[in-house]
Amino acid sequence: MWTVKDVYYVSDSTALLTEDIGKSLLCQFPAIGLNEEKIPFVKTRYDAEKAVAHIMEQSGGLQPLVFCTIIDSDVCAVFDRAEIEMFDLYGGLLDRLERKLEAEALRQPGFFRNRDDAKPDKRVEAIHYTIEHDDGQRTGGYDRAEIILVGVSRTGKTPVSVYLATHMGFKAANFPMTADHLAAYELPADIVRNRKKTVGLTISPQFLHRIREERYKGSTYARLATCRTETRQAEQLYMRHGIKTVNTEGKSIEELAVQVTQLLGISKKKR
């Protein structure tokens, strides 16, 4: 019987659902330790081949398990090779897992949910924290944050923070970079001190201009010149303090949340 297995959740989207399904199956094998990782946004054969190379480098010939939810059959097929045990999340998975892991599944309904009773409490705590630290409130509490998002107005800080808390269980604070901070070329000490868990949200001036114009048409706030100045100053601050960045342009909240956690190296954190 295997004592430890490497497991990868691969998807052409965020891989959150893939992970949930895979974990709901694997929890039936509590005696086997798991090294888990999500690989989201695998949309092309190139993405898939890159993911396979990463998996093989990490796991060698130890027959890693790959749970896959990729719609494109050609892309999904890249993972179907002898060195990998690939599951496309269709019927009969527990039977196959029993064979591959050389162990009997518990086959206990709801075991995953029952085993993780503490998770809702942690998620509620994360939601409360995120609400209390929204839009620059209580920066003195940033030492307790797991993720801090910063960016100019209308870059999506609040919705991404809320998603990180409600769907992923992270304590996420967010801080708006106002004209005062940008002009002074400085960030609050509470952010600078926690810059390793801070992500700067970026956007092109043109895209930001379109977003602002929808709500504040003709205002100085929405002018393209204002957007250019603010985005340039924000990016200079990110570079000055070594803050990692994610471009928000045209991306969904779910996609941004996953990219933020990957950038900070916490996508494998057990919640």
Rank of each mutant, 00 (worst) to 15 (best):
F111E: 05
F111W: 09
H133V: 10
V75N: 07
A103M: 04
P109W: 09
Y142Q: 02
Y90T: 14
Y163A: 12
V124Y: 15
D80A: 07
D134R: 07
A145M: 09
I127Q: 06
A105F: 06
R115W: 15
Y129A: 05
A165V: 02
L89E: 09
R144L: 15
R144C: 12
I148A: 10
K119V: 13
G156T: 09
H133F: 11
I147E: 05
D80K: 06
C76H: 07
G91D: 02
R99L: 12
R154L: 13
D95L: 06
Y129C: 08
C76G: 10
S161Q: 03
K100E: 14
V150F: 15
R115H: 14
Q108L: 14
I147L: 12
P120H: 13
L89P: 01
V160R: 07
G156M: 08
R144F: 15
S73L: 10
F79H: 01
M86V: 13
F79R: 02
V78M: 00
I131Q: 07
A103E: 04
K122R: 12
N114T: 06
P159D: 07
R144N: 12
V75R: 05
K119C: 06
T155W: 11
K100V: 15
T158W: 13
I84Y: 00
A165R: 03
R123N: 05
F87K: 00
P109L: 13
D117P: 00
G92N: 05
E102C: 00
C76L: 08
D80M: 03
K157M: 11
N114K: 12
A77G: 11
R99Q: 05
D80H: 11
L164I: 14
C68E: 11
G92I: 11
R107I: 04
D95Y: 09
E146V: 03
R123E: 08
T139Y: 05
E125M: 15
D80I: 04
G110H: 07
R123F: 14
K122P: 03
P120I: 15
R113C: 01
R96Q: 08
A105C: 02
E102G: 00
T155Q: 06
E104V: 12
M168G: 01
R123W: 08
P159C: 09
D95M: 06
G110N: 04
S161F: 11
P109N: 09
V78W: 00
E104T: 12
S153T: 12
C68P: 08
A126D: 09
Y90D: 13
I70R: 01
G156Q: 03
D74M: 15
G141I: 14
R123K: 09
E104P: 01
P159T: 10
C68K: 12
Y129L: 04
E146C: 01
D143T: 14
V160K: 09
Y142N: 01
E83C: 03
F87V: 01
K157E: 10
L101P: 00
L93Q: 04
L94F: 06
E83T: 09
T158A: 05
V150P: 06
E85F: 02
E102V: 00
R96H: 10
A118R: 11
S73A: 13
I147S: 04
D117R: 10
R138K: 13
